[in-house]
Design a protein around this nucleic acid. Sequence first.
DNA 1: GTATGTTTGAAACGTATGTTTTGAACACAG
DNA 2: CTGTGTTCAAAACATACGTTTCAAACATAC
Lengths: 217, 217
Amino acid sequence: MAQAGTVDRILDTAEVLFAQKGFAETSLRAITSKAGVNLAAVNYHFGSKEALIQAVFERFLTPFSAALGAKLDEMEASGTPDTPENVLGIVSRLALGTHPQDPQRAATFFRLSGQAYSQPQGHLRDYLHTHYGAVFKRLQAHLQRAVPDVPPMELFWRVQFSLGAVIFTLSGMQSLQAISRSDFNLDVSAADITRRLLPFLVGGIQAPMPDQLKVES
Amino acid sequence: MAQAGTVDRILDTAEVLFAQKGFAETSLRAITSKAGVNLAAVNYHFGSKEALIQAVFERFLTPFSAALGAKLDEMEASGTPDTPENVLGIVSRLALGTHPQDPQRAATFFRLSGQAYSQPQGHLRDYLHTHYGAVFKRLQAHLQRAVPDVPPMELFWRVQFSLGAVIFTLSGMQSLQAISRSDFNLDVSAADITRRLLPFLVGGIQAPMPDQLKVES
DNA sequence: GTATGTTTGAAACGTATGTTTTGAACACAG
DNA sequence: CTGTGTTCAAAACATACGTTTCAAACATAC
């Protein structure tokens, strides 16, 4: 990351700063000065700040969703049974392992995702849904086979709950670690949290259905 | 909300706008013009924009945490057994029912909380933790009695996971409803989602422990 | 009615932001 | 060398923001 081109230096720096301080709170001047490039370079290479944000996500998500697709192919080819543990395990190992040389990278990206998802107006949310919805649905289909007793709509929501638990927790890891440290005198890593997450998610996803769900207006 | 005083008109409007567009993306001018008050009124009555944000949270959270404390008193007095369903049920009914005259209000506030928690630098997160941490710990203690086999630290994280699932889902309800509608042709309300959430959370919180948790640096 | 303290209104201030411009530096083909 | 397209650098631009100012309006008590 030292002598990379202007474009990559911008992307690297923007990724970190966006995760640290948020989109609106990170100015182009902060990015360009820390990256050691000229202010105008962002608009020259990306067109606008919003395009920069999208580019940051694309650079991370495209390889990730491709890797996820490949893992699902593998799973189907090898006849691995569809259990919640297997399906969620793939995602978890992938999220933590796509950038083994930089263990911080995954945490940075979860923070980014958290911000993208909690942006109320939801540009990015829609963008993610349209561009990476296919792999997502494939994943959901595997989960459905793993818990056939859970109705599809219920599973849809449970997957959203899981997403929330994951992104929310890992995006706030820094603060949460401080609390955990003061309460338990113990440090935790992203891998540690993920290991704790898995049983929780499995338990939630395959929970028995409530007796009846009434729909109101 | 029609003829309220300046302070309340500001708070009402700010609450809605912050939830809709975020803190940084909502200008004082947008708030004051929509509230029909002068721009300077915010700085006059609250001192600064950040103080306004805190005031919005305080106005909602203080009654809520008081009500939660009362419900816990009630539970202890009546000898209601500490089960995950009972404890989580209290919170859920409270979150949905504190403002029965305005069902939108709860959703608005969840969106607010989502933004507060995902703000990376975490002023608000710390503020919430220090001001309302006591009730929170009390709740966690009840949960601990409900699932004595789960070690305290594990429970701590599971509560965080649950918080993530709740806030994340309800803060993104609007977008998620759109997806759900297109996938299932079905509409859902906040109460509906909450009813789906409960079994998920109960399943996650009382999930069996993984065989062993190694701690890494 | 006058005086006093509080609240509002309109305008201005200083600053930070995203973006645009213009020209120099550079790489490379003819 | 000359010309051409690309990248970079410095400066300026326009705008939006939070905040401050100061006088007018108001309420309340004496």
